[in-house]
């Protein structure tokens, strides 16, 4: 008597990929796996572990899309650690992802605004430019008023400008006064006030 093949269980309409598929040699399979793992809480650590090492931009973007959808403080904090990365593609992709996480990013914003690395604070201004949160303009204003580095202030002004109004005029003039030897800041403020 031959073996009786057990009738397979009916598959779910869209079965979730496994975490192991994130290591598939085929980038397209990895990308599909990363997107398919959205909503799978157990996959978050695996995605966080792999996002910095992934070399294919499309796969990394898929991982970040899935992680951003989680929008939890742990994910935001882990991703923010990459803002200081030497990998320009990684740090800019992470900044774009964090800008889509309005629930969790506010909790890490105090740390980002006071990060000792001015380059991280420049990236923070990039995040705030797109972060849909009512406090974004306030944080940008804080940077313009208080940050000691002219590049951070310039990035914050650039991020603020699309939403700036007459109420920001004195803030901008104050920035120009703080950095009297920086022609770019002076030009930017003058252009904004025109």
């Amino acid at each position: 008597m031959g073996l009786v093949r057990r009738k397979p269980e009916p598959e779910a309409e869209h079965p979730k990929p496994s975490v192991e598929q994130l290591d598939d040699p085929d980038p397209e399979h990895r990308r599909q796996a990363a997107l398919g793992l959205e909503g799978v809480a157990e996959a978050v650590p695996a995605l966080l572990d792999r996002v910095a090492a992934e070399r294919e931009p499309q796969v990394r973007d898929a991982m970040l899309t899935t992680l951003a959808a989680v929008d939890s403080p742990a994910v935001a904090e882990a991703l923010a650690g990459h803002l200081a990365s030497d990998d320009a593609a990684l740090r800019t992709a992470v900044a774009e992802a964090l800008a889509t996480m309005p629930v969790s990013v506010p909790a890490i914003m105090p740390g980002l605004l006071t990060d000792p690395d001015h380059r991280v604070r420049v990236m923070t201004a990039m995040i705030l430019a797109d972060l849909p949160h009512p406090a974004s303009l306030m944080w940008l204003s804080d940077m313009i008023r208080d940050d000691p580095h002219p590049n951070v202030v310039a990035a914050a002004i650039d991020a603020l400008l699309p939403s700036a109004g007459p109420q920001h005029a004195e803030l901008l003039r104050g920035a120009a006064r703080r950095f009297p030897d920086d022609p770019f800041l002076r030009f930017t403020v003058d252009a904004a006030l025109r």
Binding site: A88, H118, R119, V122, P150, N151, A154, A155, P183, F184
Partner: peptide
């Protein structure tokens, strides 16, 4: 760029740049 890490200029030249300047640059 605002990026002034030690390896940034090397990466720029490796990519094909002729010159690497760190902001702010005098006009």
């Amino acid at each position: 760029s605002t990026e002034d890490r030690p390896g940034d200029a090397d990466r720029a030249y490796a990519a094909g740049a002729n010159l690497y300047l760190v902001k702010p640059v005098a006009a």
